[in-house]
Structure formats: structure tokens, C-alpha cells
Design a protein around this nucleic acid. Sequence first.
DNA 1: CGCCATTCTAGGGTATACGCGATATGATAG
DNA 2: CTATCATATCGCGTATACCCTAGAATGGCG
Lengths: 167, 167
Amino acid sequence: MNRKPGRRSSRPDSPSAGAPANGAPEENSDYVLSEQIGYLLRRAYQRHTAIFQAAIPDDKLTSVQFAVLTTVRDHPNSPLVLVAQRTAIDHATLRDIVLRLKRRGLLHVVADHQDRRQRLLSLSPEGTRLVESVIPDARRITELTLANLSACERLAAIEVLRKLSRD
Amino acid sequence: MNRKPGRRSSRPDSPSAGAPANGAPEENSDYVLSEQIGYLLRRAYQRHTAIFQAAIPDDKLTSVQFAVLTTVRDHPNSPLVLVAQRTAIDHATLRDIVLRLKRRGLLHVVADHQDRRQRLLSLSPEGTRLVESVIPDARRITELTLANLSACERLAAIEVLRKLSRD
DNA sequence: CGCCATTCTAGGGTATACGCGATATGATAG
DNA sequence: CTATCATATCGCGTATACCCTAGAATGGCG
């Protein structure tokens, strides 16, 4: 991966990488991808999910699935809409996720007697056990994700991301 | 979306939301999803992509596709591997994206004469035109994404996210 | 009852990441 | 030169997450 490129072929010839040089409007020349907030958010989230998958004992459990499980644990007998709100997951997306968790027997879905439109979610015993056992790993994953940050920067990160998430 | 729920059915009855109360180890009780770095990263990235899709004139152009286009613009005649590195996109994923962009006539893919294993990417005239026309929107999107942050916080955000992205 | 909002189902399209095997080519050791 | 190894891409498949739209079922209300 970190071999020296040795690529002098196909002349990368990027005059645009340096300075505008010509009379080009500098408007479009200083749009540097690696400084864009969207690019950085994607990379940071990418790295986190990679850390999650590497550190989690259960190969099949994803970051998002775990979020759903903990939410259902904290709010049992909630309909899909509520879980979607609490996890900030789209309805359609949540549906797929719930199907997978149900298939694995981690989740129960029962119809509500009061409002028959709703399906209420709750953890199965196995689901409960899994969540309990994975939480220490989740803490470790948080630690690994934040490894490059000082205590002060961690607070700043949380604060800034909270504001970046706010609609 | 922000209608009052009016839901008193399906008794949310969450005794676990309050305090442990029983002799449970408090280890697992204070795992609050909304404070987890992974959750915040997901939400922030989610909000950004939503802003991107809403603010971009071209319905079919995604945040990631635009990243690829600008990268190719800044480094014309680069092979797929290099573009993948620069955009931090997986090879196989990039391949699909390039196919879509090529199908839309925004990209050219030609074989390298020096190293015939490589396929070099470059923008078509339409691709160039599109990138030029969209960059102002991209700046606006960045502004919208950062709307909740002060100038100082924006610098902190960039710095923190850079560190969170670093392997 | 009829209209409307809510909840969920169903299907399509895109993005992301991984994998494994095949192919072509380049580079290098023997 | 040849055998071997590395690189770049392709082809195909799997799984997940994410969002949109349309429609069915249900509940609430005038």
C-alpha cells in the first residue's frame, strides 16, 4: 500500500493543483476537496464504522443495528416510527434493519392491540444478552474513534457534531 | 413532521429510561446513544447529504459523485486507483460511480499507452461544464452545513474532523 | 359516512464495503 | 528469456444502509 508510486507515466500534468497562474477566475480553483466539510464528515464516519466492524465481537452486528438495539432496550414496546425518530433512521431503512434483527431473533415485533396500525418492538432475551455483552466493546470503539483527540478536543468534537446534526 | 404525537397508547412504560433503581451495574445504564460519537457522526453526515441533495440543481448528482468529478478535474488522466485514494472511496465502489458518470457522459475513460493496465479518467466537456456550474452551489452547501457554527467553531470542526479521519 | 392523518408495506435506485476469481500487464529475480 | 510476483482492472456476487414514492390499513374527527 505504501510503496513508492514510481509513476512517471501518464503525465499527471496537473497545472491546476498549484496556483491558478493564468487569468482564470480563482473562484473555482480554490475548491479543495480535502477541506470540504462533507468530505471530512464522510471520511470520519467511514473510519468510525471501520473501527466498529473491526472491534465488535459479532461480525454481523453493524453500528446502526446496535443503535437500534440499544434504543429498543431503553424504550421497549415502541412502534417503528418512534424508534426511527430516536435513532434518526429513515422509516424505510429502519424496516430493513428490523427485518434483519428479527431474522436473527434479537427482536420481537408484535401488533399493538390499541392501535392496530402499529407494530411494537422489543428485545428478545438473546437481544438483551447481546446488548449487555457488547456495550463494553462499544465504549472501547468510542475510545478508539477518539484516539487522536485530546480531552479538550473531544468535548469540542461532541459539541460541534451536535450542532452539525441539528436541523 | 413536527405534529404533536398525541400518542398515549401502547404505554411506553420505560422504567429503564430513568434511573437504574435496582442493583444493576450502572455500567450499561449510562450508555446514551445521542452522546455517542458514532451516532453524532452519522447524523451530521446525514444532514449534510440531505442539504446537498436539496441544494444541488442536478437531481441525479450525489455528493460522492461530485467529489469524484472535482478530483478528476484537479488531476486529469489519473488511473482509478489514484482517484480512489484521493477521494477515499473503495475501488469497487468507485467503479460503480464511474460507470454512472460515464453513462451520463460526464467522464471519459481511456487506456494508458505507457501502462496498459490502467484506465485514465478525465472530464468530458459536459463534465467540465457541470463542475464549473455546480461549484457555487457546493460553496453554498458548505455554508448551509456549517450554518449553526461560528467562525471559530468552523475551524475547530475542520481540525477535529481531520483528526477523526486520520488513520 | 367521508375526509384526512398516521403507520406501515412494498419496490426501486444509489452508495458503501468486501470478497474471490480472472485477465492483462509490468517489474524483477534467476 | 522465463518464471514469478505485484499491480490494475474487470466481473460477479453478497450484504448493508439510505432515501424516495406510492399505496394499503387503520384511527380520528367533523
